[in-house]
Amino acid sequence: MSAENTGVPALLNTALPSPVPGEEHDHCPVTDALRRVGDKWTVLVVVLLGQRSHRFNEIHRGIEAISQRMLTRTLRGLEEDGLVHREVFATNPPSVEYSLTPLGRSLLDPISTLAQWAIEHQPTIAASRRVNNLQPRNN
């Protein structure tokens, strides 16, 4: 960041075309990253693996409501994106352990920052929702 920066993140200094072309939005790296971390299970899996490596069933037991199918899909997506490492051990039966890669570990700070923001602003957001749900909408 330059000396003239006033603390505004560089992303907000980026000029967006108006309207934003749909194809540009679809291929934007930020959109892609938000799709990954914005799904229902990714953040929980990343946080759990941020504590230590886990076997599949440990992760499954650690996230009560996730199905085996969704956990498999989530782990495969995270592995495909380079965020999770899958290691197969030649035991009988074979065992598999999942851990975060350095790239996956680098996601823990932004997730923590977002979590801190959400906790700090949750009362304000909840109050706004209550007010806005009480008022009729003029569509």
Rank of each mutant, 00 (worst) to 15 (best):
G77N: 14
L48Y: 02
L34R: 05
A127L: 07
R36L: 15
N57T: 12
P29H: 12
A118E: 07
A33D: 03
R36F: 10
H27P: 00
N5E: 08
H27W: 00
L75K: 14
G62C: 09
V96S: 01
E58R: 08
S53E: 04
A115K: 11
S53P: 03
G38L: 09
T124L: 08
A15Y: 02
G7C: 01
P19K: 02
I111L: 15
E24S: 12
R76D: 15
L44H: 15
T74C: 15
A126Q: 05
P93F: 08
L134M: 13
R129N: 10
R86K: 15
D26Q: 14
R130S: 13
G82R: 08
H27Y: 09
R69N: 03
D32Q: 15
P9L: 09
R86Y: 08
R86D: 06
L48Q: 07
T74A: 13
V131F: 09
A65L: 14
A33F: 12
A15Q: 02
L44I: 04
R55S: 01
R36C: 13
T42D: 09
S112Q: 10
L108Q: 02
V43H: 07
Q116C: 07
A118W: 07
N139Q: 09
T124F: 07
M1F: 10
G22C: 02
E58H: 05
V20E: 06
A90E: 15
I111H: 01
L44T: 13
E87Q: 14
V30I: 15
P9A: 09
M70G: 00
P17L: 04
E64D: 13
V46Y: 01
S2T: 15
F56K: 02
V88G: 02
P94W: 05
P123F: 03
D39K: 13
G38K: 07
W117G: 01
A126N: 09
G38E: 05
N138A: 04
A90Y: 06
H25G: 01
V20D: 00
S112H: 11
G7R: 05
P93T: 01
P29T: 05
I111P: 08
N133H: 12
Q51D: 10
P123A: 09
A127R: 11
E24P: 02
I119L: 04
I66T: 09
R76A: 14
N132D: 08
T113R: 14
H85F: 02
P94M: 06
R137K: 12
V45R: 03
T72F: 11
R36D: 10
I125V: 15
A15N: 00
N139E: 11
V47F: 01
L134Y: 03
P21A: 03
E120K: 05
T101A: 03
R105S: 02
R86L: 12
S67P: 01
L48H: 00
L75N: 14
R105D: 06
S2V: 01
Q122S: 10
T14D: 01
A10K: 12
V45K: 04
L114I: 15
Q116Y: 09
S53L: 00
M70Q: 13
Q135N: 10
